[in-house]
Structure formats: structure tokens, C-alpha cells
């Protein structure tokens, strides 16, 4: 088996998931300049809801794709509601407040969601029911499962749809206008509150999909899973240039690749001194390296200080 190709494949799969989650961070940041710290927890909620639905329906005899579809719809619906509520309750009242205030409420929301999930679903890991038809395909000496193919394809499809939405629809135009200059957008008749709510809802729907993907890919879900995932996805968004849609996609895929290649080869790089347990460090080192040389991310706008 070719390790290099295998790691590339794994990286792409992981990267697609990161990218989906990163989009949620970047859209919110682009529009409000706010780190939605709780976004990772929305992903977790998505995974948990989807898993619960799948478990419920697993024995019902329904075709697999119907089960998955129902799970996806349920997870998206719940996540969209959660995302909407987060914005209304924790962020909207603080739009004019000092910049760090919404960060703290975001942290609060994150803690609440995590512990709510612990109360509902318990402390244990939940296994993903083995309902998916897993077939393995060989390419270039590496294996890719049908689930992985599906993840990459669906992620690509969703991202394309999102970009089309932003570039070519009235709603997208309103979103771009709002992120450019909220007061002016408002003068032009854009209902900013509505746009912001929609941004949260769309981001949360993507998060729900990503949640299902993660739990399907790793066959597991846990109330604590959102935290690290959110952190990584946010890192990806920053890596690409936060506020930039294409940047989030690029950052997500890159981070996925870096991580899985890093995990595969870090031992060789360091002469065995560092093992694959340093995988997480790798991501952060790359992030720091990129930001030192390109302070606004890979394709972020260069913000030159006007004086």
C-alpha cells in the first residue's frame, strides 16, 4: 500500500470536513467580524442528532439512503435552530458592545451546548451503526472507501452551491454588501438582521452535514468532539484568510493534507524524535509559519493601515 497516496486521500477527506466547518466560521466572521466560538459545538450537535436518528431508524427496514437523508434533515433542522438561537440570544444584543463581550458569550454558549449534550447523550462514546455499505476501492495503490468518496463529493457539491449562492443570487449580493459595509447595505434596503440570521442558519446547516460526515468517517461521536474539530476548522479558516470563502475551502483542504501527511511523516522528518502524537502541533506550526509571513492568511486581503 502506498502510504503517501493513502495519506493524501485521508487528508482530502479530513480537509473536506474541515472546509465545511471553516465556511461557517468564515461566513460569520466576514459579516460580523466575530469568532463564533460555539460553531464547533454546533457540529457536535449535528453529529449527535444524526446518530440518534440513524440508531432509531436502523432497525426499521427503511433503505439506507432514506435513513441517512432523514438523519441529515433532522440534524440540519436542529442545528439551524441552534445557530439561529445562538445569534439571537448571545450575539445580537452585543453588536455595539466592546469587542470581547461577544467572545465571552460565545464561550458561554459553547460550554452550555457541550454540557447540554452531555446531559442528553451522556459521557460515553457513541458508535456509528454499521448501516453504510462500505466498499473499498483501490487507486494508485491506496484504498478509499465509498463513505470517503461520498464525503468528498458531497462536500464539494455543497461548497460549489454555497459559492454560487453568494456570487449569483440576490441573497448572496446582500450578504456581500453587508460584509463590505453594514450601514451602507442597510441604507440600500438590505435587512441586516435577516442576513446575519441567514448566515448563521446556513453555516449551521453545513455544520450539521459536517457532523454527520465526521461521525460516519470515524464511526464515533462524543459530546466533546466539537471542541477540537472547531478549533481545527477555525485554524483552517484563518490559514486561508478569515472572512474569505475560497480561503476557508483552501485552508480546510490544506490543513487536512498537512495533518495527515504530517502524521505519516513527522517521524521521518525528526529522525524518530517526534511521533505521530505530535500531529496537532504540526497544524499549529504551519499556521504560525503562514501567519508570520502572510499576516492575513493565504488569500486574505492585505489590510494596509490607512492613516
Amino acid at each position: 500500500m502506498d502510504i503517501f497516496i493513502q495519506q493524501i486521500i485521508n487528508g482530502l477527506v479530513l480537509g473536506s470536513i474541515y472546509a465545511l466547518v471553516a465556511l461557517g466560521y468564515t461566513m460569520v466572521y466576514g459579516i460580523m467580524g466575530l469568532i463564533n466560538f460555539a460553531h464547533g459545538e454546533v457540529v457536535m450537535i449535528g453529529a449527535m442528532v444524526a446518530l440518534t436518528v440513524i440508531k432509531l431508524l436502523a432497525g426499521s427496514g427503511l433503505p439506507v439512503y432514506i435513513v441517512i437523508l432523514v438523519a441529515l434533515i433532522a440534524a440540519s433542522a436542529v442545528c439551524m435552530a441552534v445557530g439561529y438561537a445562538i445569534e439571537r440570544i448571545a450575539y445580537r444584543p452585543l453588536r455595539r458592545a466592546p469587542k470581547l463581550a461577544p467572545l465571552i458569550t460565545a464561550i458561554g454558549v459553547s460550554i452550555v451546548l457541550q454540557n447540554l449534550a452531555m446531559l442528553v447523550w451522556g459521557r460515553n462514546y457513541h458508535a456509528f451503526p454499521p448501516i453504510l455499505p462500505v466498499s473499498e476501492h483501490e487507486i494508485l495503490g491506496a484504498t478509499i472507501t465509498s463513505v470517503q468518496v461520498a464525503i468528498v463529493l458531497i462536500a464539494a457539491l455543497l461548497m460549489a452551491a454555497l459559492i454560487a449562492l453568494i456570487d449569483h443570487t440576490r441573497l448572496g449580493r446582500a450578504m456581500r454588501a453587508t460584509s463590505e459595509n453594514p450601514p451602507i447595505a442597510q441604507l440600500m434596503g438590505v435587512n441586516i438582521n435577516q442576513i446575519i440570521s441567514l448566515t448563521f442558519v446556513i453555516g449551521s446547516a453545513l455544520a450539521a452535514v459536517a457532523g454527520l460526515m465526521v461521525s460516519a468517517n470515524y464511526s464515533i461521536a462524543h459530546y466533546y468532539m466539537g471542541f477540537m474539530l472547531g478549533l481545527k476548522a477555525f485554524t483552517a479558516a484563518v490559514l486561508g484568510g478569515i472572512g474569505n470563502i475560497a480561503g476557508a475551502v483552501l485552508g480546510g483542504i490544506l490543513l487536512g493534507l498537512i495533518e495527515s501527511l504530517g502524521a505519516g511523516y513527522i517521524g521521518d522528518f525528526t529522525g524518530g524524535f517526534l511521533g505521530s502524537n505530535y500531529q496537532d502541533i504540526f497544524a499549529f506550526f504551519v499556521l504560525i509559519g503562514v501567519l508570520v509571513f502572510r499576516p492575513s492568511g493565504l488569500i486574505g486581503e492585505k489590510v494596509s493601515e490607512r492613516a
Partner: peptide, 18 residues
């Protein structure tokens, strides 16, 4: 679960105070 409940309340307190 008391541990979850206590952190839940703590998170709520953060939000409300802010």
C-alpha cells in the same frame, strides 16, 4: 449529571452577565 449541570449553569452565568 451534577458535573454537566454545574458547567451548564456556569456557561449560562457567563452569557447572562455579559
Amino acid at each position: 449529571d451534577p458535573e454537566a449541570l454545574r458547567m451548564l449553569l456556569f456557561g449560562l452565568a457567563l452569557i447572562v452577565v455579559m
